[in-house]
Amino acid sequence: MSHPRHTIKIFITLLFLFFSEQHSSAAKFEFQKSIANYQIPDVVLTNQDGKKVPLIPFLDSEKPVMLEFIFATCTTICPVMSVSFTNLQRRLGKDTEKLRLVSVSIDPEHDTPSIMNKYLNRYNAQNGWDFLTGSKEDIDLIMKAFDAYVSDKMNHQPLTFMRSPEEKQWVRVNGFLSGKEMMKEYQKLIGQDL
């Protein structure tokens, strides 16, 4: 017959062990963040509606910008990066157009406006999120400008580039951010870092 105080001790110990275990078994987020200057090439791309988009003015926006390199038939990295954009737009609610989300195709031979449109629908993209494609030569130039070039698209990295309207410099994130962390980065871009 054990004393309740003894049982309480066991209870607290078990709780402690439970939380320790939870902590130690939590999945690890690994990403690197750096600041860089990039010279955007003067190219004209095409968006999901078939409209021509000159890249320099498009990125030199009054809104904060987040840019990723993806392709529509990617197996692992791009779907997760895209739901990350979906989630960010969901969190922004009515304010989706206050942030410019840009996905640039690294498989321009395959990713036509119609394919990109379907892709954005699949990820429930709202206004403010554009998917851009272009000639292979122009896409290579952009990837090189962002120090993201790979000759084989399957070797691409999970890169997100972020810039606030007042800044010339880009924040380069290599890795995946949770929804909460992504939102934090957005708040930093708009100067609401708490």
Binding site: T76, I77, P79, V80, V83, T86, N87, Y123, M154, G179
Partner: peptide
């Protein structure tokens, strides 16, 4: 996914990453 992001089966499925054979494989850093 990623700890706190909701995802549905019409966005991506097991097949996306683990492939039709189920044998997975490399992509980029993963």
């Amino acid at each position: 996914v990623l700890g706190d992001i909701e995802v549905t089966g019409d966005q991506f499925t097991c097949l996306n990453c683990h492939r039709r054979s189920g044998l997975g494989g490399p992509e980029g850093t993963k």
